Simulated scan of single mutants.
Amino acid sequence: MSGEGGRCPPSFGLPPGYFDTKEGQDLLARVAGLRGDRLLIAVAGAPGSGKSTLAEALVGQLRDAVLVPMDGFHLDDSVLDARGLRQRKGAVETFDAEGFAVMVERLARPGREVIYPLFDRSRELAVAGAGVVGSDQRIVVFEGNYLLLDRAPWNRLRYDLTLFLDVPEDELERRLRGRWRGLGKGDAAVAAHLANDLENARVVGEGSRQADVVLRNS
């Protein structure tokens, strides 16, 4: 993984010892240089780009940091069924974008506890009140596909640092195919999930604002 034109092993995880590399150390130094009583960091990228792994690893390197995934704002399957969107689950229109935006705006104000939902993948549903950002936690790291989309309400949100993982589509396809096969999906289901994921990846790649830091993974 590397900023502006470098290379990294094609995997969902970080290269071993990533935060001991110059790039990893530079990223930590950039975070350390941020000033404020509450700092908001956004980690965005397409499905399969590795953003969840990076965000989790970054939080593990920081004091007083907490991870808040966007996935807790998935609309419930019953709502998706009513709207004819079940097959598009994961697309931008299948999230409570306004709800997520309000939470980010609340978290921008320091010194207060904020409760948020978490997505339970084993049950494929969001669980209300499952996550907590404590009043004393200074750094909030968000991760999600659509954090940098240049459309409302996403583009009204302001972060202190934004990261974007840029991965070629053929590599995303390889990873995502492996993900769905690993979950026991048959050929038809894999093909359907893959088509949906890659369509969402194109929305992310073509519609996101420029990030402060772009990590390229080929």
Score class of each variant (00 low, 15 high):
124 E>C: 05
189 A>W: 04
41 I>Y: 05
19 F>V: 01
26 D>W: 07
5 G>V: 12
189 A>E: 04
165 L>H: 00
13 G>S: 10
149 L>D: 04
106 R>H: 03
169 E>T: 15
51 K>H: 00
26 D>S: 03
133 V>D: 03
190 V>E: 01
105 E>Y: 10
91 A>R: 07
185 K>W: 15
189 A>L: 11
159 Y>G: 04
54 L>C: 07
193 H>M: 07
33 G>H: 14
166 D>G: 11
36 G>Q: 06
71 D>P: 15
131 G>L: 03
20 D>A: 11
166 D>E: 08
23 E>R: 14
123 R>I: 07
152 A>M: 08
185 K>C: 12
218 S>F: 04
166 D>S: 13
26 D>C: 02
130 A>C: 07
214 V>A: 12
198 L>W: 05
163 L>S: 02
218 S>V: 13
10 P>Q: 11
126 A>K: 12
203 V>I: 14
162 T>L: 06
126 A>L: 10
21 T>C: 03
49 S>C: 00
26 D>V: 06
81 D>T: 12
91 A>P: 11
200 N>I: 05
140 V>S: 09
203 V>N: 12
172 L>C: 03
79 V>P: 04
1 M>W: 04
142 F>I: 01
191 A>R: 15
57 A>C: 04
78 S>L: 15
98 E>A: 14
148 L>I: 09
164 F>H: 13
9 P>Y: 06
167 V>N: 00
28 L>V: 03
124 E>H: 13
9 P>F: 08
203 V>Q: 11
151 R>G: 00
217 N>I: 09
69 P>H: 09
157 L>R: 11
172 L>G: 13
213 V>D: 06
73 F>G: 14
64 D>T: 13
1 M>D: 00
136 D>T: 15
108 A>S: 15
100 F>A: 03
141 V>S: 05
142 F>Y: 08
96 D>G: 15
42 A>C: 04
96 D>W: 07
200 N>C: 06
6 G>I: 08
14 L>F: 02
169 E>P: 14
185 K>M: 15
76 D>P: 14
86 R>T: 09
56 E>Q: 03
164 F>Q: 10
126 A>G: 15
140 V>L: 07
66 V>F: 08
83 R>Y: 05
28 L>F: 06
9 P>H: 07
98 E>H: 13
124 E>M: 13
71 D>V: 09
10 P>T: 10
159 Y>C: 05
87 Q>S: 15
188 A>S: 13
162 T>C: 03
105 E>D: 09
196 N>F: 03
63 R>C: 02
17 G>P: 12
101 A>W: 01
76 D>F: 00
73 F>A: 06
144 G>H: 04
172 L>R: 09
29 A>Y: 07
17 G>I: 01
139 I>W: 07
26 D>Q: 10
165 L>I: 02
94 T>Q: 02
127 V>L: 11
119 F>L: 02
132 V>A: 04
50 G>C: 08
89 K>R: 05
167 V>E: 00
95 F>R: 13
167 V>G: 00
88 R>D: 09
94 T>S: 03
190 V>H: 07
166 D>P: 12
37 D>V: 12
186 G>S: 05
13 G>I: 00
194 L>V: 02
